[in-house]
């Protein structure tokens, strides 16, 4: 088997005296979706930030294609093909689709000081990239980002990452703020990214969404991996129980009823 695209080997992260992550080891393979599950405060965000270069691990190592790497800035991680898409798409609501798609890497024509931003080309590429992901409703590159639905924005951000050669796609709760239909949209895009051979890290606390696309699941509890399993190895109830911190949902329900009675 080839080495995983991205691998964490017993990574610890602490901020001063506070340990946030303990002994995290994970492997991300091409064409696979790794679902990172966990309750609020379980260390999901810290783990993502360590992966995309915002934090450096206190101990342990990060490997890409089997070789050890260190990222000193998010930009460095990006250059190596690790793209992060945040909950709200990380885009510019008042810019057009074409312009925001190419922020920082604008296509130009002309020469010297008269290099002109090539609006037609930018719009065409951006719209094509999004439509390739099955979002056919986006057909005018001059539309403003703020006019798109939440799902369309996510899709655009993912299409952008793929277009610029991302190999590892980190999706930070992409479906959290979305309705059922929009979320389905985004899940379809995630599957498409997977089909194209990207390693996708999908962070969520909605077990349904995770089970719809995931190949590989890791549950974080208080900064440690409480469970690591492949698709089909656990039932939905078991995963939900794990996310609730090991307590079974049935116990929680009993507790809630207890409050109601008291």
């Amino acid at each position: 088997m080839t080495s995983p695209v991205l691998e964490l080997r017993s990574v610890d992260k602490s901020f001063g005296p506070i340990d946030v992550l303990h002994d995290i080891s994970l492997k991300m393979n091409e064409g696979e979706v790794l679902c990172l599950l966990g309750d609020n405060g379980a260390g999901k965000s810290t783990l993502i930030k360590t992966l995309c270069g915002v934090h450096k691990p206190t101990r342990g190592s990060i490997l890409m294609d089997g070789a050890e790497v260190t990222f000193s800035t998010p930009r460095e991680a990006q250059d190596k093909g690790i793209a992060t898409v945040h909950q709200f798409g990380g885009t510019f609501p008042l810019m057009s689709i074409g312009r925001s798609f190419f922020v920082g890497v604008e296509p130009t024509k002309g020469w010297g000081p008269f290099k002109i931003y090539d609006r037609k080309k930018a719009n065409k590429i951006a719209v094509e990239a999004v439509q390739n992901f099955g979002i056919t409703r986006v057909d005018d590159g001059d539309r403003l980002i703020g006019g798109l639905s939440g799902g369309e924005r996510q899709s655009l951000a993912i299409a952008r990452a793929v277009h610029f050669g991302a190999r590892v796609l980190i999706l930070d709760e992409p479906t959290a703020a979305l309705g059922v239909k929009q979320a389905a949209h985004v899940l379809r895009i995630v599957n498409e990214a997977k089909r194209r051979g990207l390693a996708v890290i999908f962070i969520t606390h909605q077990v349904m969404h995770a089970m719809a696309v995931g190949d590989h699941f890791a549950v974080l509890i208080r900064g440690a991996i409480a469970a690591d399993f492949r698709k089909g190895e656990r039932s939905r109830e078991e995963i939900t129980d794990l996310m609730a911190g090991g307590e079974t949902m049935a116990d929680l329900e009993r507790q809630i009823e207890g409050y109601a009675d008291a």
Partner: peptide, 13 residues
């Protein structure tokens, strides 16, 4: 030019 784009992007986020 691209520089204008950069300024708008900076103001956006």
């Amino acid at each position: 030019t691209k520089y204008g784009n950069w300024i708008f992007a900076m103001g956006g986020d």
